[in-house]
Design a protein around this nucleic acid. Structure first.
Length: 246
RNA sequence: CCACUUUAGAGACCAU
């Protein structure tokens, strides 16, 4: 029953928007299949992830004409598009509109905005939002923490990043491969081989599988650390495994 | 271990 949405999503994810929109128009012309909010969300999300936020916004007007109301997915897609474009203030306003429309911000909403301010390097705004979400009874999740670590590592304080990692462990969070990749990247850029090895030990203990980004990060990191033989070793290890492409 | 849509990580390439 959702095959048309799945199809449009596939086209969007391959950035084949003209075909996606063709398909969309065809659905629009054929009355028996109803366009629904998900159909619009799929297109908008695809556009937003490709930098066409303003085009995506046009679809909001269109969906309203169809009597469809944007849901939290619609708002999240747009807010994300704005955030990664460095337009986090606009994203913030959009989320306020969402709240006015009766949709409460959730962890994803906050993560999007927090990441937006992280991209702008505004860590004070980042923390302001973290405090705000906690006050609203929302718990920062693994994604939130990863953004925080990324932000601090980027702004030069890998130690703060490591402290947040410790905080996560204390609070019972299992770091995942993304979080470790962030740390590996920052630590090797800082020349902290000892810490890199400690993280690798932790990952092994936790039974985490390396993925393609982690491998690439580690190979690059070892090269930066001057450990070319280690880098080659990782290359060979990677070759002997099946690593899903991204 | 999964079936319609939203959030976090690397490098390379290209452009500037």
């Amino acid at each position: 029953p959702y095959s048309h949405n799945i199809f449009i999503d596939g086209l969007c994810k391959q950035k084949r928007f003209s075909e996606a929109i063709c398909c969309f128009q065809e659905l629009r012309a054929r009355k028996e299949l109803q366009l629904c909010t998900v159909t619009f969300n799929t297109i908008m999300s695809g556009l937003c992830n490709t930098g066409y936020v303003d085009v995506a916004k046009l679809f909001v007007g269109m969906m309203l004409k169809y009597g469809l109301v944007p849901d939290r997915f619609s708002y999240a897609s747009l807010a994300h598009g704005l955030s990664v474009a460095g337009r986090t203030e606009e994203a913030l306003e959009l989320c306020e509109d969402m709240e006015m429309a009766g949709i409460e911000p959730d962890v994803v909403t906050y993560n999007i905005l927090i990441n937006g301010f992280r991209i702008l390097g505004l860590m004070d705004c980042v923390w302001r939002l973290v405090r705000e979400m906690i006050l609203k009874g929302l718990e920062p999740d693994l994604v939130t923490y990863t953004i925080l670590i990324t932000g601090h590592c980027e702004s030069g304080s890998v130690d703060v990043g490591m402290r947040i990692r410790k905080e996560m462990l204390v609070r019972g969070f299992q770091l995942n491969i993304v979080t470790y990749s962030v740390l590996l990247n920052a630590l090797s850029k800082q020349g902290r081989l000892g810490d890199v090895n400690q993280m690798l030990d932790e990952m092994k203990t936790a039974g985490l599988d390396m993925d393609i980004v982690a491998y690439s990060t580690l190979i690059y990191g070892y090269c930066k650390l001057g450990e070319i033989d280690k880098a080659l070793q990782v290359c060979n290890m990677m070759r002997s495994k099946i690593v899903p492409p991204n």
